[in-house]
């Protein structure tokens, strides 16, 4: 009997205790609201805030203006020339004879595409396998060290890559495969190394972003680690991996300095991997020093084509990301 009464007393005490707590909480909430009102009214806090806001907006506007100015400049100088030559002729004619007024960047157009595909052809598989190793197989400390090393690889200036290619790769090709060594192959090797960090980092992130519970579920169904990687993790990370490839493609198309140094730069369509080629970017950097008049305009037009290329790649990226969202996440 006593026990029951005691129990009831405890219950009542607990109840009172709870009410007290909620009152204290309400009082606290009230205090916060008052503080917020004071803060909103205080001008001392307001003025720096307006300044910060304006500063941020100014920075944003300057960045956007830079983009706008560059595009307007490139297109205003380049488009009239493309119009007078004709877009088809400009893009596909193989005759690049600036002195005779013949501006066809066909060889360079093909050169850019060829060099980019050649470097992607070996760098994508290698980079993807590296990313899988780093994300799934390497013990975490090894993965961390590799991540740092890949970042270092990304930080090497492109002229150093070019120099390395010129001093090491080009002579190797000349001695063992023939030709001058200044070739598509040399360019593809150097460019491939340069885009490896992009491919590795972005695909590794995509693979690591696949929820752990997918992996556990797959293993719990009796799949092996490699079956899980091949049938579940890679498909789940596919939109990220494609993003990596597209970004690497953008980087490869835009790369100039290293490419100029090792590819020989003849404005012809190469007939073998050992023949020289010239890319659109090389074309600009090689001739801008002395070009004038229509010739200069033709170089701007080359830049405009590159610009459109990158724009298309960006659109493609947006499209991939949207398609990726259809299946991703829960």
């Amino acid at each position: 009997m006593n026990g029951i009464i005691e129990g009831k007393i405890t219950a009542v005490k607990q109840h009172n205790n709870r009410e007290e707590k909620s009152q204290i909480l309400q009082a606290k909430a009230g205090r916060w609201e008052r503080i917020l009102v004071i803060l909103r009214k205080s001008k001392a806090r307001f003025i720096p805030e307006i300044l910060v806001e304006k500063l941020l907006m100014l920075s944003a506007v300057v960045s956007i203006m830079a983009l706008l100015l560059i595009s307007v400049f490139i297109f205003s100088r380049g488009v009239p020339l493309i119009a007078s030559v004709g877009l088809g002729d400009f893009l596909f004619s193989l005759e690049w004879k600036p002195i005779q007024g013949k501006f066809g960047i066909g060889a360079m157009f093909v050169g850019s595409l060829l060099l980019t595909s050649a470097s992607l052809a070996w760098a994508v598989p290698l980079g993807l396998l590296t990313a899988i190793f780093m994300a799934e197989i390497a013990p975490p400390p090894v993965g961390r060290i590799m991540t740092r090393m890949v970042s270092l690889l990304a930080g090497i200036p492109s002229v150093v890559y070019g120099f390395f290619g010129l001093v090491i790769i080009v002579p190797l090709i000349r001695n063992y495969l023939g030709g001058t060594g200044m070739s598509v192959l040399a360019g593809a090797i150097i460019l491939g190394i340069m885009i490896l960090p992009t491919i590795i980092n972005i695909s590794r992130d995509a693979i690591q972003a696949v929820p752990l519970v997918y992996k556990e579920s797959s293993l719990a169904l009796g799949a092996s680690h490699y079956q899980t990687i091949g049938r579940l993790i890679l498909p789940a990370a596919s939109s990220g991996i494609i993003t990596a490839v597209v970004l690497a493609m953008g980087r490869a198309i835009g790369e100039t300095m290293a490419v100029v140094m090792v590819t020989g730069n003849a404005a012809i369509i190469p007939d073998s991997l050992l023949a020289p080629l010239r890319t659109m970017t090389s074309n600009i950097v090689l001739e801008m020093g002395y070009a004038a008049g229509d010739h200069q305009a033709a170089l701007f037009a080359t830049g405009a084509i590159l610009f459109i290329f990158i724009l298309l790649l960006n659109l493609l990226l947006n499209f991939i990301r949207r398609a990726g969202k259809r299946y991703a996440g829960n």
Partner: peptide, 19 residues
């Protein structure tokens, strides 16, 4: 693999695969 085929598992958060 044989063990996990015989002893299946369902997790807290329904982990449907992205397919």
């Amino acid at each position: 693999v044989e063990l996990r085929k015989k002893v299946g598992m369902v997790f807290q958060k329904p982990a449907v695969f992205p397919m």
